[in-house]
Design a protein around this nucleic acid. Structure first.
Length: 113
DNA sequence: CTGATGACTATAG
DNA sequence: CCTATAGCCATCA
């Protein structure tokens, strides 16, 4: 889904977002699984910071032994995100998109003026 | 169209 | 904390 990748690309460095959050912003309510499904299908070449997407609970979506798990944690740490035991302090790093992030995105429900 | 799948989330035990 | 179940819904075969 193009919308999903687009949204993920907007996650600022040093922040993380849950799948459900991404889905909601992308316009797919309760489409958390679709986000995961889409990311799993990522094209070879992409600029999507998929490593900034974690589970709602702050857990890394991958298995602890998975090489992807290591890559994600590594990337996140490089961006200043503290990862402990495969978990992230969402309370602290959760991405809170400002209106700026959302205004240009959907739709034109803002034609009011 | 139909059925299976899953980088999810919620709730219960 | 962990397992089990049940919703969820775009994407795939």
């Amino acid at each position: 889904m193009h919308r999903i990748r687009e949204t993920i690309r907007d996650i600022p460095k040093g922040c993380v977002a849950s799948y459900g959050q991404i889905a909601e912003i992308a316009g797919i309510a309760r489409g958390a699984r679709q986000v995961g499904y889409t990311l799993r299908n990522l094209p070879k070449v992409h600029k999507v910071p998929w490593h900034r997407v974690v589970q709602f609970s702050g857990n890394i979506a991958f298995d602890e032994n998975s090489p992807q798990f290591e890559e994600q944690t590594t990337r996140l740490r490089k961006e200043g995100v503290t990862v402990m035991s495969g978990r992230i302090d969402m309370h602290k790093y959760r991405w809170e998109p400002d209106l700026d992030e959302l205004l240009w995105k959907p739709t034109s429900a803002w034609d009011e003026s």
